[in-house]
């Protein structure tokens, strides 16, 4: 059975398009692409994924909730960090004043972050949310990096299942 992947990334059609080739031709993945926060929420609410790969700098899409956050933060993807906001919604959705709820199946172990952001504040917030898979975007990465990230997320989930718990196994991936 194919691994279901949601890649939340607004540069997937252009700058990062070379990363998609290995995914498609491997035949092992069923990948959806969400290019903004609104689309990401819609995909997450309509389907169960094995892995969600999340960028930090995202445009809001058409939903007012994301547009308002984006505007409040100066309408700049780097400042708005909607990916981080999206991760917050995934795991604190009901307390984040979002008018829509995160899906029940989603845990921090389904999510990996793939971003150019590499500062301490991002890391500490991801840690707080329990997201352990992190990959810094740099020019020198192989075109199979996306597959590597997905594998790390899936293996992390499998490790949890093997350990028979739904909580952290204490071994950051």
């Amino acid at each position: 059975m194919k691994i279901k992947v949601l890649w939340v990334e607004d540069s997937a059609r252009l700058e990062l398009r070379k990363l998609t080739g290995p995914i498609y031709i491997s035949g092992n993945y069923d990948m959806n692409l969400a290019e903004d926060a609104t689309s990401a929420v819609r995909y997450l609410q309509s389907k169960v994924y094995d892995a969600v790969v999340l960028d930090m700098r995202l445009p809001p899409g058409i939903d007012d909730y994301w547009i308002n956050i984006y505007r409040d933060r100066g309408e700049d993807k780097a400042d708005a960090r909607l990916g981080l906001e999206l991760a917050g919604w995934m795991f604190n959705g009901r307390s984040a004043n979002a008018p829509f709820s995160p899906p029940g199946w989603l845990t921090p172990y389904h999510v990996g972050v793939f971003t150019v952001e590499n500062d301490n504040s991002v890391h500490s917030k991801l840690n707080e949310l329990g997201i352990r898979v992190f990959q810094h975007k740099t020019a020198g990465l192989a075109d199979t990096i996306l597959i590597d990230i997905i594998k790390r997320i899936v293996e992390q989930g499998a490790g949890l299942v093997r350990a028979g718990k739904g909580e952290s196994d204490g071994n950051p991936v």
Binding site: A12, R13, G21, Y24, I25, N32
Partner: peptide, 14 residues
């Protein structure tokens, strides 16, 4: 390949 912009890169890899 659901996104036409990704046809060339995917087929190049193949």
């Amino acid at each position: 390949i659901p996104t036409p912009e990704l046809y060339p890169v995917t087929l190049r890899k193949l």
